[in-house]
């Protein structure tokens, strides 16, 4: 399925291996941490791959920053500004996928797999431990009458020495 998905997506747009163009020579001005936070939450939609408004020096990023500054001055909250930007440019304009609907899969899948893995690991280890305990109990019962052999003593001493050396 995953491979099918990859194949289906093959004609997706690619970005040529090109550097910045002459439009990417504008001043980045960030006046305060509130601005930095908002600019860092939004992607520049000029076509450059993955640059955020906080790092893109293109003309359209500069215009977007100015627009956002005006919105901040008008008393809009971060959520309102982000929502407005998203309405104009689409969901891909947000640096963090919104925590809504199916898009929650982005963190839900790893988290559930993480927790599922922990449960699976716990169950496996418990089973392995139970097996070991049962074998040790059997060995103990059969060894009660047995006389320790010289070989065992030697092994134990060797183990101790190695343990010492190993720290």
């Amino acid at each position: 399925m995953a491979l099918g998905l990859l194949l289906a997506l093959m004609p997706a747009p690619a970005y040529a291996q090109s550097g910045m163009d002459d439009m990417h020579s504008h001043t980045i001005r960030i006046d305060n941490e509130h601005e930095r936070d908002i600019f860092g939450s939004l992607r520049c939609m000029c076509g450059c791959p993955r640059d955020l408004l906080s790092t893109c020096s293109c003309e359209s990023a500069e215009a977007a920053r100015e627009q956002i500054r005006r919105e901040i001055s008008a008393g809009m909250t971060k959520e309102q500004i982000l929502l407005g930007y998203q309405k104009v440019h689409g969901t891909s304009a947000l640096a963090v996928p919104p925590d809504t609907g199916a898009l929650r899969a982005i963190y839900a899948v790893p988290l559930v797999a993480f927790l599922g893995g922990a449960v699976g690991l716990g169950l496996t280890v418990r089973r392995w431990q139970a097996r070991s305990a049962s074998r040790n109990a059997k060995a103990l019962r059969s060894d009660t009458l047995a006389v320790p052999a010289k070989r065992d003593e030697y092994d134990a001493r060797l183990d101790d020495e190695l343990k010492d050396l190993d720290g």
């Binding site: 998905l5 990859l6 289906a8 997506l9 997706a12 860092g40 939450s41 992607r43 993955r50 955020l52 689409g90 969901t91 891909s92 304009a93 947000l94 640096a95 963090v96 996928p97 609907g101 199916a102 898009l103 899969a105 982005i106």
Partner: peptide, 18 residues
């Protein structure tokens, strides 16, 4: 981004803040 585009027809960006 490609999973979301294929399954939900929703283009998203996963940027450094995430």
């Amino acid at each position: 981004p490609m999973i979301s585009d294929a399954l939900w027809n929703e283009k998203v960006t996963v940027g450094p803040p995430y």
